[in-house]
């Protein structure tokens, strides 16, 4: 579910210049901000932090005119702070996430490390498309994809191990960062899916160690894989098997996932 900071498939037409720019991006010395995407909640800009050479992402939650000002301020503050806390915690424990540079919870913005590379969704679709053009059969010669699925499972497992659940795991919220020394990763023939998996967009995340919450996280990812990349769905088991080895207690979560699957999110309606 691309609800936080990723573009809808067909974003409503609106003049972006009519949007207020957060004050921090209005200083004369600031690198001109570039609006990357706007979701329901937040606007994501690219700018720089401290040095003109240090790129950063700025996530801005503008106030909502429909909300009571007190409620609006309370929610914005809470969401900025909880996202920053989760990011800091992940970072401290070695989970691959963007670093927090700065924030102003009253003004509603959070400045974080700029992650190079592409989201997994784009990379995966490119790879699947290329294979189709080359006429490679499904299940044939897919070691590269298996490797990526394993890295995704490992990254999610490490995040769960430190007591964080993402709340919105999709292939749009997973980045593939090229490894050092191969910045032009794309050029390396046949290594399109190489790179480090970095988790992004913690706007719906929370701190939890419940197996239920973790299993729901996996379920959401599984559904997203199924709907976005039907041709890669059969390899989702690789994500789960890597996840199962990633931390103590992961096997209990996988067991729970079976329950969650059975239940789905379908609730029988009463009246």
């Amino acid at each position: 579910m691309d609800v936080e900071t990723h573009p809808a498939t067909n974003p409503p037409q609106r003049d972006p210049s009519s949007r207020p720019i957060p004050i921090i991006l209005q200083y004369p010395s600031t690198t001109p901000p570039y609006l990357i995407t706007q979701g329901a909640e937040a606007l994501l800009y690219r700018s720089t932090y401290l040095l003109p050479s240090l790129q950063c992402a700025l996530k801005y939650r503008p106030s909502k005119p429909y909300r009571h000002p007190i409620l609006d301020a309370r929610l914005t503050k809470h969401r900025i702070l909880s996202e920053a806390r989760v990011l800091a915690k992940c970072r401290r424990e070695g989970v691959p996430v963007p670093a927090v540079y700065a924030l102003d919870e009253a003004a509603g913005w959070l400045m974080i490390e700029w992650i190079e590379g592409e989201v997994v969704r784009v990379k995966l679709n490119e790879w699947l498309k290329r294979r189709k053009e080359e006429g490679v059969m499904e299940g044939q010669d897919d070691g590269e994809l298996v490797g990526l699925m394993g890295r995704v499972g490992g990254a999610v497992g490490r995040m769960h191990a430190v007591g964080v659940v993402h709340g919105d795991l999709t292939t749009s919220n997973l980045m593939l960062r090229p490894r050092k020394g191969e910045e032009n990763g794309d050029a390396v023939e046949g290594k399109m899916l190489d790179g480090e998996v970095v988790l992004i967009d913690f706007g719906l995340s929370s701190q939890s160690t419940f197996d239920e919450d973790r299993a729901v996280d996996l379920y959401v990812l599984e559904r997203a894989f199924g709907s976005t990349h039907p041709r890669a769905e059969s390899l989702f088991k690789e994500v789960l098997s890597a996840y199962g080895k990633s931390f103590k207690g992961a096997s209990v979560v996988l067991k729970k996932l079976e329950d969650v699957r059975m239940r789905g999110r379908k609730r029988s309606m009463l009246g």
Partner: peptide, 22 residues
């Protein structure tokens, strides 16, 4: 009213962003 309607408007806005309708 202010609290529950803000919640309803928020989830509606999410759905609108998701399906690209206005």
């Amino acid at each position: 009213q202010e609290t529950i309607y803000a919640m309803l408007v928020e989830i509606t806005e999410r759905a609108m962003a998701h399906v690209g309708s206005n």
